[in-house]
Write a protein that binds this DNA or RNA. Structure first.
Lengths: 343, 343
DNA sequence: ATTAGCTGCTAATGCGTATTAGCAGTCAAG
DNA sequence: CTTGACTGCTAATACGCATTAGCAGCTAAT
């Protein structure tokens, strides 16, 4: 394919009998400057541009201006691989939407690191291609986060993050209050012996659920079982549940809830007839399970949108970045019923 | 905070007590040039780079050298919005995987255009930030495609595309043969009166299905019903199906098949007991329907992978780009049975 | 003693654009 | 006739990097 050397403003200038600067001004000069170029000259230049099909090289343009209109998206796990797909997709949906509105492109930091070992500051870090970046992932590398906070590179995390040598700008879901609201609901339905299936930390997302849960205890509510490990055999969890007299179980992971529900059904137990179950969060694929669990909604798209908007503000106006927690509304579901008097 | 002034090679140079040129050479000089910089100096420079976390500005780099290690991804519809999410996600999965292997980052050309009106050449094609680009979408803008083919910018389409002022480089699925194979299967099971639910074009993807289908007719096979509009009321389609004596229906859209199956079941008809149904393609969310339709598999991830690999070859070695159709293997399913003698 | 070749660097330039400072010319007012 | 303001442009520079030409100092061979 014959690659005719790209036209430059210089070429246009020569053809129009003006200087390169004039071409640039005609193209996108400030109104004040434009006012000083007579209509006639402007038209001559425009005409040459039109007939040649010239388009300014965006690279050079950005080079001169200093801004790329590119937002980086760094994920601590590969963004698309099937298992994770449903975790990241809704965030990306919101991010893409807002980015488009703000007229930014998205750079997926893919090459960053192969396999497990993703590091923002990996060797040959390409982050700075973008004007700023969004960071997502279940668990962050604390050291990297500190470095980000300490640096002058604009970023926003998705999901609440503890201070790391300073406050971390983020948009997260208010899991603590989402959880608390569900506990209150259980209380209202007469439950008093609760089980909690999931770790109390260390990731912020799980820590927040736990603190919301734990903070709502007392005053008639009692934690009678805490299974800290995720992915435990369903039978085992079920036995423990029945053994300790809990009337409602709070699950951090939907997967656990699904498995326990299945095990219960196999034994002829019903939910919420025999005991109630609550999932602390919403999961895209929840629909696939025939059971609609009582849970709270995580406004993932909105988180993506707001985080993107905040990042753009940081980039364009130098705003400092703040910390936003979005409300997680309860989802009715069908697995939380009145407490059953156990015999 | 106004200008978080990024580090430049100049800064590094000063810190290491060398010149900017030396820094650049240490970073990526040709072996011949590198040989002339003693180990000691190189280490000094590297050390400064590491401790400061300096990264070369890719825009400037691209400006100077012309390459970026960035692949653009242009989608004719927003990449993530829920309805489409399942359409693009598997492609992106393959693309991301291969890009990572080849050590490229992905730039989602998001800002390109808002809403329906996505255009590659919309604003002074920011496309060129990337070294090359992948184009995906159900339907392409033919004019833009022609411009791409005519230009010297490397790109690869995902999905077969007709010539547009020249052959279009693509990696697609062989829908025609995938369809043909399913028709043959139906023939082997004694079917002779076929129905086709879906348009014959104009998009290549639907045209290929139709041509594969139509080409397999004759020799005992007869098209007794062709419903060209997608999304027609299920009842209506069902009536037509029953009325014309078709023993098997080929659906272009899974959604139609699902709705017709549901309508049939409601009337006490069974598939494939009363008539068979075949879907021309695979759909991620197929699992959600309780019925496993007989269909063919679209190797979306593999398409993404191979398209990415081809693009990289075009970029790095200037290869001309070719046209690849990947085999779409049949999916057994449970909706294609022996033809039933209609009374 | 001159030349040739090597080592270890640096100065200079180009990439294509945006932007600013300022020049030469005209015109009107003082 | 000088001053100032305005018009219509252009020269020059910056942006951050890659790359090439080449300089200064040294050694070894002729």
């Amino acid at each position: 394919m014959a690659a005719p050397k790209r036209l430059t403003q210089h070429d246009i200038a020569k053809l129009a009998g003006v200087s390169q600067a004039t071409v640039s001004l005609v193209l996108n000069g400030a109104p004040t400057a434009l006012a000083r170029i007579p209509q006639e000259t402007r038209e001559r230049v425009q005409h040459v541009i039109r007939t040649t099909g010239y388009v300014a090289d965006p690279i050079a343009r950005r080079m001169a201006k200093g801004l790329n209109r590119i937002l980086g998206v760094f994920t601590y796990e590969p963004a698309f691989p099937s298992a994770q797909a449903d975790f990241f997709t809704p965030f990306l949906l919101g991010i893409e939407e807002e980015a488009q509105i703000q007229n930014y492109d998205l750079l997926l930091l893919t090459g960053a690191g192969v396999g497990q070992d993703r590091k923002i500051f990996a060797d040959g870090n390409r982050l700075r291609i973008a004007d700023g970046c969004l960071v997502l992932g279940r668990e962050f590398d604390r050291e990297e986060l500190t470095r980000l906070v300490g640096g002058d590179y604009p970023f926003v995390a998705i999901g609440r993050r503890e201070d790391a040598g300073g406050p971390v700008p983020y948009v997260g879901g208010d899991y603590a209050n989402g959880t608390r609201a569900l506990v209150e609901k259980a209380r209202a339905l007469g439950h008093s012996k609760l089980a909690y299936i999931g770790p109390p930390g260390p990731a912020e997302s799980t820590a927040d659920r736990w603190s919301g849960f734990y903070g709502a205890l007392g005053d008639g509510l009692e934690l009678v079982l805490h299974v800290e490990t995720v992915g435990r055999a369903a039978e085992e969890i079920l036995d423990a549940l029945l053994g300790c007299g809990a009337t409602v179980a709070f699950f951090v992971e939907l997967a656990d809830a699904v498995r326990v529900e299945a095990a219960a059904r196999e034994r002829g137990l019903s939910i919420p007839g025999d005991f109630s179950a609550v999932v602390l969060g919403s999961h895209i694929r929840a629909e696939r399970s025939h059971v609609q669990f009582t849970a709270f909604d995580i406004p993932r798209e909105e988180m993506g949108r707001q985080a993107t908007a905040m990042l753009v503000r940081r980039i364009e106006r130098g705003e400092p970045g703040s910390q936003i927690l979005l409300t997680c509304e309860p989802v009715e579901g069908e697995t939380l019923g009145p407490a059953k008097r156990r015999t």
